[in-house]
């Protein structure tokens, strides 16, 4: 398991109050209000372009949002972020190990990886089953492998709040299982997770709470309560990706 020197993490609770976002005269988010309970795995679902990613970026403080987003930290205050993509030249000779090294240390990755980070990086990569592919170039990774590496990165340092933007997109079955297992472990450790997702089956199985975003909050609650078929159809229109 990942080693951590502090107390077991208690993730924060998050409060969204009348959050809005308007860019280039287009309203992306409007009156978004809901709560993420501490230690919960909270999924965000909704159609593409509905504002899920924008909401995540607002939570990260990187958009000029209106309204109020409050994070009530209980344990530590580390945020781990798993983005959807990395934008880079695929022919660049940067290996997975190089990438993880750059994440961890100040010393340039082309010199060497410091000893104290070598184990940490190895552990994280092993958790996502990428430790054997450490010397692969980032550009050679499949979409799923890339996602797993990005996941590993978010675990260093061990997060109290884990934010994932569509980590399931393009991932293979095996990889998805790996990530699921880790997230269950994180759940047990009471890490708060905010997770945008398209796989409703996964949401139903794993999430403690789910919120549907399509510019506004369409519905929010526990999966049992709100993930009824009509609601799903209502949210996604004719294009349902249900079970």
């Amino acid at each position: 398991m990942l080693t951590k020197n502090e107390d077991p993490p208690h993730g924060p609770s998050i409060c969204f109050e009348m959050v809005g976002l308007c860019l280039n005269n287009i309203t992306i988010l409007q009156d978004v209000s809901f709560t993420v309970k501490a230690g919960n795995m909270h999924c965000l679902i909704g159609p593409n372009g509905g504002g899920k990613t924008s909401l995540i970026l607002s939570l990260l403080g990187q958009t000029p949002h209106t309204g109020r987003i409050t994070i009530n930290w209980i344990g530590g205050t580390t945020i781990g972020y798993v983005p959807q993509v990395l934008d880079f030249d695929r022919t660049l000779p940067i290996t997975v190990n190089n990438f993880m090294t750059m994440i961890c240390q100040n010393m340039p990755a082309f010199i060497r990886t410091r000893k104290k980070y070598k184990d940490i990086i190895n552990n994280a990569l092993r958790l996502v089953s990428m430790d054997t592919k450490g010397e692969r170039r980032l550009g050679e990774l499949s979409g799923g492998e890339m996602q797993r590496v990005l996941f590993a990165q978010a675990l260093i340092p061990f997060p109290d709040l884990l934010i994932l933007d569509e980590p399931g997109a393009g991932i293979d079955r095996g990889g998805a299982k790996v990530i699921e297992e880790i997230m269950l472990v994180l759940k047990k450790q009471k890490v708060t997770m905010v997770w945008t997702n398209h796989d409703l089956k996964q949401v139903r199985q794993m999430a403690d709470a789910v919120t549907c975003i399509h510019k506004e909050v369409l519905f929010s609650g526990t999966p049992d309560e709100v993930l009824t078929t009509e609601r799903v159809f209502q949210a996604f229109g004719a294009t349902s990706s249900g079970p």
């Binding site: 990187q62 983005p83 934008d87 750059m102 100040n106 340039p108």
Partner: peptide, 22 residues
């Protein structure tokens, strides 16, 4: 400057949002 900020500069170009979070 190059040695001190190399890693961070590379990461910034990969994904600025992720870089900021870190």
């Amino acid at each position: 400057c190059g040695l001190r900020f190399y890693n961070r500069m590379v990461l910034s170009s990969f994904n600025p949002n992720l870089a900021r979070v870190r």
